[in-house]
Design a protein around this nucleic acid. Structure first.
Lengths: 147, 147
DNA sequence: AAATCAATTTAGCATGGGCTAACTTTTTGC
DNA sequence: GCAAAAAGTTAGCCCATGCTAAATTGATTT
């Protein structure tokens, strides 16, 4: 069965994949600002060592990435000090947290296990359009207020 | 509101992100074998020029990628000739096509526009666990057979 | 205050996945 | 059958994202 997806025209393919590549470029940025925001809440500050531990990468990698985020205006940091979000970084973190929560809640509303919902949300959140996110949100809401 | 996601323990974070990085490493491979399979069906063969056009990249990039896929055992090709899937490549393409269709159908079942469903499916499909995929499939089925 | 330990940074490397420009091979059209 | 066009390949470049090893800085402890 599986009702035959509308085949995108050739011309659309290229655009689709270009947008996907862009999306991927933002993923690491989003994961970092989200995690930095979490750390500031949970531990009072965001240290490179904590980021390294949570992402499962080396401190050197964190350093690299933080430099990129700083270059791109999402964080500020001084040598040997902890890491701060700029306004842009905070705004992005807020957006990401909200989006993550909506995706997570949606997966839970569908009946998925918390562990799986958490993992899948982490992957899916970066690839959900505003429209789809809104549909997810409404669906969860409907389930909560009693179908 | 937004029912408070279970916070993964610190130890789980690293594993989550390691798996996400793995998932990303497979995305391009999956997109390529899927597209190669499509081209063989649609045009009788998969040429580098068609892949380049559909992905919106240069022929040189396609060449690079095909070399990697060949190294990894998913495709076979001879210089200046078209590209073939190995058994492993075909199996992966089949799996991806099915998964893509399930995600697409699910988004459609949720009421999303075909264009948006197609784009979001392309991003989401690589990040859906077997469990979530099964829930998607059942949901779509339920909607079809009349709530 | 010095020594030690933890955290951070730097240097140098690899791979993936893009690019352009130049070149070779294959296909096509006369 | 040859010339031009199309397709494919190669070389050399770039950036993102990872790594290890070594150097440096900051914090702690005696």
């Amino acid at each position: 069965m599986a009702g035959g997806a509308v085949l995108p025209t050739k011309e659309n393919h290229a655009e689709t994949f270009a947008r996907l590549r862009d999306a991927h470029a933002r993923e690491v940025t989003e994961d970092y600002v989200e995690m930095i925001a979490d750390l500031i809440v949970e531990e009072g500050e965001a240290r490179a060592v904590s980021l390294a531990e949570r992402f499962g990468v080396t401190p050197a990698t964190v350093n690299n990435t933080i430099k990129r985020l700083e270059r791109d205006g999402f964080v500020s940091s001084r040598p040997y000090r902890s890491i701060f979000l700029t306004e842009a970084g905070q705004a992005l973190a807020d957006k990401c947290r909200e989006r993550h929560q909506i995706v997570y809640d949606f997966l839970i509303a569908l009946g998925l296990d918390a562990k799986i919902a958490e993992f899948d949300a982490e992957g899916i959140e970066h690839h959900v359009s505003a429209e789809t996110l809104e549909v997810f949100r409404k669906f969860t809401e409907a389930r909560k207020t009693g179908d």
